[in-house]
Write a protein that binds this DNA or RNA. Structure first.
Lengths: 188, 188
DNA sequence: CACCGCATGTAACGTGTTACATGATTCA
DNA sequence: TGAATCATGTAACACGTTACATGCGGTG
């Protein structure tokens, strides 16, 4: 549903065509989630089918612009007015994997934990470096200092916050693992 | 891919039938992500198609047990040996939504932020309460103190860590928003 | 000319969700 | 007897990803 609503939101600024939408999406999310062009078109087709967008007149270059319908505007409004539910968040593969690693025989949980920690720390560094590049470009004026860049920085920071929490959680898991596996930890 | 690999992992403990797999999955994930039974069957069918599992002999009650094939065991092994990549994490609807709310005209970002904060805090409380219920049941002996309950607690804690990080991020967004919107914040 | 990037699609596939159909068992 | 739960499925659909086809325009 993210892509669908994102396209609707972008079309609030005015009619756009496929490649523009892809570029606008990636600019605002700091290339964190590259968007396949094909998906833009299929999503646009579904939005048109559902009456949320319609084809606009083609411009001089023959680009196929889409614009919001009233129903699309209502849909977008409803999106802004609703919260992203975190009571039942999307299944987290990592949490599931560790929960199973704990209970299934023949799995070295410590090994899984440590390898994952390395991977997550590496991801954290990637995001941090990207953020540094973005903010310095913003200062230099290389990147436009508009709301788009600010949004991209915030997106990267959400990834950073999440990765940091994940590292903490992995350490927490390892600590608890030591406590339960080591019988003389609690009562010496 | 989570469900597929989870079923494979559960079948490492021995042949099981559909409802058992659903129950086992939910026991280990603390009901955090209820699993539709239908999906168990469709996933099993696809695993059978791919040669990762095969039908076992039916038991006295006529239950259709499935067991791992060698290919399935290899697939599971490969899962344990690989990291869950966080360089390109699944698209986060909340981050996308806020990034767009910042740039699209006619959206009250502060309002979106505050309503989301409330929702996330509520989710955090839900997870915390569930965790408390689980650990107390574990102490009472109401719940089995095995690895399954430990796994469920860790899963809930991953949700708690993530929700806490999200609240911090939302506050961070609001602070940055104030700074950029308020022109006399940086240079008095 | 050949190649690359832009631009618009389409087809096939994988995964996940919901709703429905069907039968057996259990229990008030 | 009637309702609820267990149990095994199927069908239809939504979303996402990848790969491919096609044409246009500029550039080496």
């Amino acid at each position: 549903m993210s892509v669908k609503h994102a396209l609707l939101a972008l079309l609030c600024e005015g009619p756009r065509y496929g490649y523009e939408l892809k570029a606008a999406f990636e600019a605002r999310t700091g290339d964190a989630w590259p968007l396949n062009v094909g998906q833009v078109y299929t999503t646009l087709a579904r939005l048109e089918r559902d009456g949320h967008v319609e084809r606009d007149s083609e411009d001089v270059d023959g680009h196929v612009h889409y614009r919001l319908t009233d129903a699309g505007r209502r849909e977008t409004r409803a999106w802004w007015d609703s919260e992203v539910t975190r009571e039942a968040p999307p299944r987290d593969e990592l949490a599931i994997k560790l929960a199973l690693a704990l209970t299934v025989p023949g799995v070295d949980v410590r090994d899984v934990l440590q390898r994952q920690r390395t991977a997550t720390v590496r991801a954290l560094q990637t995001h941090t470096r990207r953020r540094a590049r973005l903010t310095s470009a913003q200062r230099d004026g290389t990147a436009p200092a508009g709301a788009g860049t600010t949004a991209a920085v915030l997106v990267l920071e959400s990834l950073i916050f999440a990765a940091e929490a994940e590292v903490r959680w992995l350490d927490h898991c390892e600590a608890r693992l030591l406590r339960t596996a080591d019988p003389n930890g609690a009562r010496p």
